[in-house]
Design a protein around this nucleic acid. Sequence first.
RNA 1: UCCCCGAUAGCUCAAUGGUAGAGCGGCCGGCUGUUAACCGGCAGGUUCUAGGUUCGAGUCCUAGUCGGGGAGCCA
Length: 540
Amino acid sequence: MFGRILRVCEHDSFKRLSETARGITFGSSPHGEVCMAWLRIVDALKAPVGTRVTIKGWVRTRRDSKAEGGLAFIALHDGSCFDTIQIVVKGTLPNFASEVAKLTTGCAIECDGVIAQNPKGGNELQCENPSPPAGDALRVVGWVEDPDTYPIQPKPHSFEYLREQAHLRVRTNTFGAVARVRHCLAMAVHQFFHQRGFYYVHTPIITANDCEGAGQMFKVSTLDTMRPLPRVAKEAQSAEAIEHCRDLAAKANMPPWTYGQVDHTNDFFGKEAHLTVSGQLNVETYCMAMSRVYTFGPTFRAENSNTSRHLAEFWMIEPEIAFADLNDDANLAEDMLKHLFRTVLSERADDMKFFAERIEKTAVSRLEHIVEKPFLRVTYTEGIKILEGAIKGGRKFEFPVKWGTDLQSEHERFLTEEHFKQPVILTNYPKQIKAFYMRLDDNCEPDRQTVRAMDVLCPGIGEIIGGSQREERLDKLDERLVEMGLNIADYWWYRDLRRYGTVPHAGFGLGFERIIQFITGMQNIRDVIPFPRAPKQAEF
RNA sequence: UCCCCGAUAGCUCAAUGGUAGAGCGGCCGGCUGUUAACCGGCAGGUUCUAGGUUCGAGUCCUAGUCGGGGAGCCA
């Protein structure tokens, strides 16, 4: 009767249905029975014509026709792919006038029907009651209570507006596509490292190191800072007075002030604690035993940054490789980026096609272009020469170009967007503008000392990766700590790595949201993370 | 944090200091295997907040809040 039907017959288990639907095979049932399987839309769009299935999802649009005694066309999405499936509902359904005709954008429905060929090509679902009838073929699972004020309409919304509707914006095609691409990339990151023998290390989110030194940190404390602070007046500070103050504070779970400073001895960790700004220092310890490791987790920066490329909470990927130098590090970064690009092009072709059509014309073509040829590698010093040459040629920059100073955004963008027009790995920066743990280059001119650092610059985004070979020599590391005014004692366990079996090693940090931005062409970083955290922004 | 721009119907935007408008969406009707459908009608407003200038402020001034772009910090 139905030509081809599902071989499997599942009814009520969400999990079993989903698993079954993935590996479903189609063909004639030996018993001729009618089976109703819940298919995700991605599978329904590929199912053979005549297959009888159930589909569940949310209405994107509904249009009506008076033809054939009344028809309703519903575009349904369920997140399984970019495309919606069209449900064609016959006017003969008992609940057609009472329910189907009243469906609006956002309603949740499930419908039974038969896969059919759409006159314009592709699959659609003919929703009709089975014979004999066994309940309504289209069932409304959840109504939209007031269609007039439902925030997501079937029309282009501004990203700024949708940011204020972050709990609903994933129902739009853009944010659905971003969510699938984000997932695809996260899986591809793990796949890339796993295939190359890296171990995934869960570095801590809370840290009591005050030595991370990468900008402003969020404080983590259980002290009740809402209460008045017992404090000892400067002129009355005696040992007894301070002790008394500490007692009071300990009993009240308050942060006592002594000598004008918060005393954290009563705090949860007994010392000042923060949210991590990087897993690098911790993951280096695992690198010195496991050889190839990486972290992939949330990272927090309390900087008051209001830009399209910064978040207060973002996800960072930080590999660390032992017995390796800066060149190995750059190779790893290049291989990883190319793996991510290839994976997203093949696994999320539907979403990438959308980004290329509606968000950024070159979204697909530039990735295809990039994976085909090696990244350029240029030293900082060569980069400066190129910039100086451009200035001589009449190019104007707001900031001066001078060896020994950090490159400004405009300089980086000039190199990657105008001069090379492709990703560039810039290496060997002057030591005074880089972190203490980066390895000093050998054989430098005395007044032009550089470190084995690298930045990967991409058109449109700027710096997407920052990395370096680490200083593995204890004496050199200590010199750098002192030079930068850091307290050597605070770094005791990090220094131990250089005392016990030290080896050359290297690593980098990749901002996960920035790579998603680069791939999708989404201009604001707040639109590539589900619930962005930024200054004055933590509503959801 | 600094510089610039903005805030008007559910959404996107108009409106010379002088009666608050359109498109989309919603509702009603027409047409239609439609698919960002189309055609007609209806409803929908404390013009971000608080002050000020003016006979009169959506419009000008001051402050604030929020949003956007750029910069710094970085990933």
